[in-house]
Design a protein around this nucleic acid. Structure first.
Length: 415
DNA sequence: TCTGGGGTCCTAGGACCC
DNA sequence: TCTGGGGTCCTAGGACCC
């Protein structure tokens, strides 16, 4: 019998911080905001002590935060106040002003991410990455993977992760990824839930349609308009009606999902499609008035993407920019060059051309740079690859872009 | 007191080729 | 002179996820 597990680390970013600040255990802690917004001097070990000796008064609290950003994670103590991830910090401060606010430490998080995944693959090698704090695991052919529907193996993995890292996780085991993902939410934190095919009507159908991985706010609102609130409601509609209402692909998918069907395999390896860097400014910037600052940020983003590509050994052909205006509208532009690159100057030059094709009258909140259509650097070949000194200097306009270049919008000529 | 940063996948239209 | 499809690439936007 197919047994698939979904494992979710509990309040991962916050739990990783609690490991070095054990005095915060049981307190509301929110991770978020920018590193530069927190006075790091406060968070250095006191004379003759360690970080664990820092008094609570040394920690910044949400009440004092003034700036942009959202919560990445909140401890369960903070969630009791209604604070959740992706919530604006200003709103979180209203709900729980006394919560301790720490910036995310991505290097630490990545270290612990590697550690817990290493524990898993030692025990069950067929594991699919779903970001820093989540994985799918195929229990089917693991010795002992069928015992108690997978519960025995799940316990073994939980214990192994705790022994290696001091962190807890929640695991759901089911016949497929769809159900396993929902099951892992049943008993949090530090729980295990086992779901069988026969549990569909009793345990899955009562859930809100929004709980399905892939039904987001838009689809949920549309479902609601048709009187569909739960997965059970969805299952009652016939397939043809769903297809007529949501389109061939989405409608058919919704029908399968409502009946608990999902045959996607657990995929252990995949190649990246794109790499990007983006930043939200501390204040909205204007292309004219803040030109110098924007230029510096833009160059830095290009350099970071280039460094990411080089470090990971990829080059890309499609260079693009993204910006978010002060009213939150998003614009993207991209251009494909003949040969893949990982060179900062080339990326900066092409991205600069993209920037010239987008309206820049309105103030900007965010700027991003993206490189897509990636190939491995070792497969790209070293001769002829575009770089800053390349003889291929002028890049011909890509085919699909020609028409659009002609009717340029009126933009402030800047970059 | 609104709303991060890193991704994936899908759709849809136009260009271009056969 | 007018009229085809099929397939692929490119671009822009959007939904969604962690």
């Amino acid at each position: 019998m197919r047994r698939i597990a979904h494992l979710d680390m509990d309040a991962f970013f916050a739990s990783v911080e609690l490991l070095r600040y054990p005095q915060l255990k049981g307190l509301p802690v929110v991770i978020g905001g920018s590193r530069r917004s927190v006075d790091q001097r406060l968070l250095t070990p006191p004379e003759g002590g360690t970080l664990a000796d820092l008094p609570l008064s040394a920690f910044p609290v949400l009440r004092d935060y003034a700036g942009r950003g959202v919560a990445t994670t909140a401890t369960y103590a903070a969630r009791q106040f209604g604070v959740g991830s992706a919530m604006g910090l200003m709103k979180a401060a209203k709900l729980c002003p006394q919560a301790i606010l720490l910036p995310a430490d991505f290097d630490r998080v990545k270290h612990y991410s590697r550690s817990f995944k290493a524990v898993i693959t030692e025990i069950a090698p067929v594991m699919q990455d779903r970001g820093v704090d989540e994985v799918y695991i195929d229990f089917t052919d693991v010795p002992g993977g069928q015992r108690e529907g997978g519960r025995v193996l799940a316990r073994l993995i939980q214990r192994g992760i705790f022994d290696a890292t001091g962190l807890t996780c929640s695991i759901g085991i089911a016949p497929n990824k769809l159900l396993a993902k929902m099951a892992s939410e049943f008993d949090k934190p530090n729980g295990i839930s086992v779901v069988y095919e026969d549990d569909l009507q009793t345990r899955i159908w009562p859930l809100a349609a929004r709980k399905v991985n892939g039904i987001g706010p838009k689809a949920d609102a549309k479902l609601e308009r048709h009187g569909i609130r739960t997965i059970g409601d969805l299952a009652q509609r016939d397939r043809d009606w769903l297809i007529a209402t949501f389109g061939k692909s989405t409608g058919a998918w919704m029908h399968e999902v409502a009946w608990g069907r999902d045959d996607r395999p657990v995929v252990t390896e995949s190649e990246p499609v794109s790499m990007s860097r983006e930043t939200t400014f501390d204040r909205d910037l204007h292309a004219v008035r803040d030109r110098a600052e924007l230029g510096r940020i833009f160059t830095a983003l290009c350099e970071k993407v280039a460094a990411d590509l080089q470090r990971k050994g990829y080059r890309g052909k499609t260079i693009g920019i993204k910006l978010r205006y002060d009213d939150f509208r998003i614009a993207t532009r991209d251009q494909t060059i003949p040969l893949p690159t990982d060179d900062a100057a080339t990326i900066r030059r092409i991205a600069g051309q993209c920037l010239k094709r987008v309206p820049l009258e309105q103030r900007l909140r965010l700027l991003g740079v993206r490189v897509g259509t990636l190939v491995r650097a070792d497969a790209a070949g070293s001769d002829g690859v575009l770089d800053g000194n390349s003889a291929f200097a002028p890049v011909p306009a890509a085919r699909g872009a020609i028409k659009k270049v002609v009717d340029l919008p009126t933009t402030v000529p800047l970059f």
